[in-house]
Structure formats: structure tokens, C-alpha cells
Computed example of a mutant assay.
Amino acid sequence: MKRQRLFFVYACLLVPLLFFIGVRIVPIVYSFLVGFREWDLLSEEKPFVGFSNYVALYHDPVFLTSLRNTVFYVLLGVPGQLAAGLAIALLLRRIIRFRAFFRTVYFLPYVTSVVAVSWVFRWIFMKNGIVNGLLLQLGLPSQLFLGSPDQAIFIVTAAMIWQNLGFQMLIFLTGLENIPKEYEEAAAIDGAGAWQRFVHVTLPLLNPVLLFSVIIASISYLQSFTQILNMTSGGGPLNSTKSVVVYIYELAFKQFNMGQATAATVVLFLLILLLSLLQLKTLNRKVEY
């Protein structure tokens, strides 16, 4: 009877394991193999070329630009998203009336279509958009915004931060509500001010939530695609907003160069893996209650 129960348990575990291997592990291994071949969708021959695809990436200025832009999205978007989300969560924690309403309002952009949000931002910051209209009314010169190589990346990052703000707020709010109030009350009795309680009590106890948020947000910005594709028509102007994922998309489905596109995918995979491990190493701190 015990063996039958164990067999049933292992059988139930084996089915999702095989599914995971089939849809996750096998494609990853296959991608590594494709990256070592000259894989043209229009050609039947796919010869082995070794590291030539990776060398081509290193000498491709468009790829290097997209890699730099992707790093910029992470460096600007992750701290901005976390800081804004935590600030709103701290404010919502203190209100009593209409709490559910405010939570819904802030969370609503996160469940809104990314394409719709991207086009709204594109309309707001277009040449004859709302923002330029306000600038002209204030006597200030109009700006190119999404048409400027220097400004476009900031507008795209702002759209990403705004849309993901609700998710970040909800995560932080959940973490704040799980912190025992006795710790803050004890610190207040000892004479600690609001800022001291936040730095020495709230933030350390929020470390697990902060670690989760940093890793999830970093992966999200490293995979930036939809906003860029819709707001800047695929990375314009002059590739100033092009991310690595957009570069891979254009290389694979516009130029049909699957070998080099897969090599770029492997580079992105390694970048995400190394960054996640680094964040786990540096931000993971054990907090004793």
C-alpha cells in the first residue's frame, strides 16, 4: 500500500517535470546549439560556425547600443520604480478611509494593456501633444521628446515605471502590513524619529520584499520590448531606445538571421542570470525578529 502511494506521488511529480523539461530545458539547450550555426530561415543548410555569431555581435554597433540602452533601463527604471512604489505604499498604509479605492486606482495601470498605455504616452508626448501644449502656454519652448535621441529613452522609461507602479506598491504594502507594529512602537518609545524608524526598523524588515522586487523589476527591464516597439517604432530615433530584445526581434523576424539572434538571446540570458545572482549575493541579508 505504501509503495502504491509513493508510486502515485512520483507519477504526479513526473508529469509536470517532463512538461517543464520539454518547454523550458530543451529549448534553452537548443538555443545554445543554434547560436553556433549560421541559421538562416530561408536556407536549408545551417553550417557550424563556432563563435562567429558572438564575434559578429561584439563588432555590431547596433547590438552594443541596444545593450547600453538595456543597462540604462535597469539603472534608471528599477530604482525609480522601487522608490515610487515604496513611497506610495507608505502613504496608503496610513490612510483608513477609501483605502480600497486608492489601491485600485494605483493598481489599475498594471492590468491595463501595455500597447494601450504605450500609445497614450506616445500621444501625450508627441509634437502637438498635451505636454508641449502646456509648455507653450507657460512660455517655454516645445520639445521633441520621443523624436529626440537624448530625451526619448527617459520618456519610455517613465512609461514603464508608471505602468508597473501599482504592482510595486502592492508588493511593498503587503510587506509593510506584515511588519509587527511593536517594533516601530518600541523604537518610538526609545526616542527614534520617523526617519530613523524607517531606516533602522522598516527597511531592514522589508529586506526579503526588497530583494524580490529588485530581482523581478530588473528582469522586467532587461526584457523591455512592447513599450519600445509601440512608442518609438522599434527603438528610434537613431536606435537611442532600442533594447536587446527589440534587437533580437528585428534580427530574427526581419532579417531572418536566427543564428546571430539566438546568440544575442544567450548573451541576454547570461546577463539576467549573472545580475540575479549578484543581487541575491549583495542584497540577501538575514533579519532576526
Rank of each mutant, 00 (worst) to 15 (best):
V117P: 00
P204K: 09
L210C: 05
M160K: 10
V120A: 13
T226Y: 02
P141F: 08
F225N: 06
I95W: 03
V114I: 15
S142M: 06
V105L: 14
L108A: 15
D150F: 10
R103M: 13
P180I: 07
L136W: 03
K127T: 15
K181V: 11
T104N: 04
G129Q: 06
Y106V: 15
I216G: 00
Q163K: 15
L173A: 10
G175E: 04
S142E: 14
I161H: 05
G193K: 08
T104V: 09
G133S: 13
I216H: 10
L146S: 07
A152L: 09
F125H: 07
F212W: 10
A192M: 08
W123T: 14
A188W: 01
M169W: 02
A188S: 11
Y106L: 12
V120Y: 03
S224V: 13
G175V: 04
F225P: 02
P180C: 10
A194C: 00
V209A: 15
E184V: 11
K181E: 11
E185G: 01
I171W: 05
T157V: 15
T104C: 09
V156R: 03
T112K: 06
A192G: 01
T112F: 06
I124V: 15
G191V: 04
F101I: 14
V111Q: 11
Q168F: 11
G191D: 04
F101L: 15
D190C: 01
E182W: 02
A100R: 12
V115A: 12
G139M: 10
I179Y: 04
S118V: 09
T226H: 03
L170Q: 12
M169P: 01
F101K: 02
W162H: 05
I161K: 07
V111F: 12
N178T: 12
M169A: 07
G129D: 06
I228R: 00
A116L: 14
Q223H: 05
T112Y: 05
N164L: 08
F98Y: 11
A116D: 03
R103H: 11
L136A: 12
